[in-house]
Amino acid sequence: MNDDKLILGGKAFSSRFILGSGKYSLSLIEAAVRDAGAEIITLAVRRANTKEHENILDYIPENITLLPNTSGARTAEEAVRIARLARELGCGDFVKVEIMRDSKYLLPDNNETVKATEILAKEGFVVLPYMYPDLYAARDLVNAGAAAVMPLASPIGSNKGLATKEFIQILIDEIDLPVIVDAGIGRPSQACEAMEMGAAAIMANTALATAGDLPLMAAAFKAAIEAGRKAYLAKPGRVLTRGASASDPLTGFLHN
């Protein structure tokens, strides 16, 4: 198990929990690092674009890998500009591409995301694109040079869990990059389920931020993600969807 690392952009991570950027506070970051074991923390460049009061950059411990995101971008061009700004701000080479042209549901635009990924990957960024779980788009992202794909489980902030489960499973089966499930994971059990399916990591924010006891929920996510990962590596036993299975093989006569 100790050798089981998440590799992103040539960097190895022991933790498979990534903190998202939606609802920030100092206590959330503390709990994510201390209790959930997060080694990667997302930050919205637009929120870091502040002068003095409460700059979230000041909250983030030094040994943590920053994952700046391009939230606020409505086109590939805007996302590229925000990514470059993040690099200038000293946030490193990781970038989570988020492009939304919908202010109501905040659903990602896969077409623009592919375009931005291609440009940024060529510029040496480690690009983690947030996407709607569509197989064609995922393949295009692979070809564009993405370091992982990040399909959404359900609408962002909704805590509704794996609404897109079947489609995420297709990506896990068909895409050779880490599949990081992002957005909509509301409970540790849902995170565990995604990990059992073969997801490489889980990104969450609201699930922790809106919990009654933040550190306790962070610890629950850590345990759930680890359990799901172990189960995946252990290769789960079969699950019957209907009926029972005869213990005498039907083709037994062939061997008589």
Partner: peptide, 11 residues
């Protein structure tokens, strides 16, 4: 509450 002074980029 958490006061926020900016959550915006001019792009």
């Amino acid at each position: 509450l958490q006061p926020v002074l900016n959550d915006y980029l001019y792009v």
